[in-house]
Amino acid sequence: MNLTLRVWRQKNSQEKGHLETYQAKDINEDMSFLEMLDVVNEDLIKEGVEPIHFDHDCREGICGACSLVIGGIAHGGKKGCTTCELRMRNFKDGDTITVEPFRAKAFPVIRDLVVDRSSMDRVIQAGGFVSANTGGAPDANAIPVHKDVSDTSMDAAACIGCGACVAACKNASAMLFVSAKVSHLATLPQGQVERENRVRKMVAQMGAEGFGNCSNYYECEAVCPKEISVKNIAKMNREFFKANVSKK
């Protein structure tokens, strides 16, 4: 199939970007969206045009590197699917597809479709961990954990840190991402000691990074490739409230 792409091109963080139109010819429907871009890039290189830059690594939906807002939806709109897993069979011959970077104040564009998501790392640095130095851990089976608790925790822990939630949120809020981590650790017995401190610090850092506030749009959940539920946001709200009451 043949497609028309309108792709955001931006030389660097200072330059103002713009949309550029390219033709994607002879696209096979088994290709992933990124493989389609590879094909376009190969053509661009032949023409002497610098290829379109985009982040990617694992190409199987787990590293969280790939991003892109495709046709106005982060990761392209197929449920539970990252851009790298999105197949071209989801598009029709002749479609025009607009491809933009994830946009947020906290995600400045580095080049073309590549953005700087280090703000998310810094939120984790603020408290998204259990302070367990290597070596002192008790036997792994010393504390039994109810299977349901462990499963709930895993549901939240599945977040790949892609930032699509931020990209999709009308407020560019990182609540889903942050709440996934808060919830993952607050659910497990291992996360109890630092529970209050963790949520206080992570919420503070989230604000400092310039993410927006949550208006409970639930748009984040709709695009999240790991289908992280917004119930985690409710949980984080609860945790934050309790933490501020307890002052532990």
């Binding site: 309108r6 046709g71 106005g72 009308k170 927006g212 749009y217 639930y218």
Partner: peptide, 26 residues
């Protein structure tokens, strides 16, 4: 909140679709 949220995305999308956020919420 409205302004903070607005400024959290200084450059808007050219094309932006809504998947499930209700009109009421927006």
């Amino acid at each position: 909140l409205y302004f903070e949220n607005w400024f959290s995305r200084p450059i808007r999308y050219v094309v932006s679709k809504t998947v499930q956020a209700s009109l009421s919420s927006r």
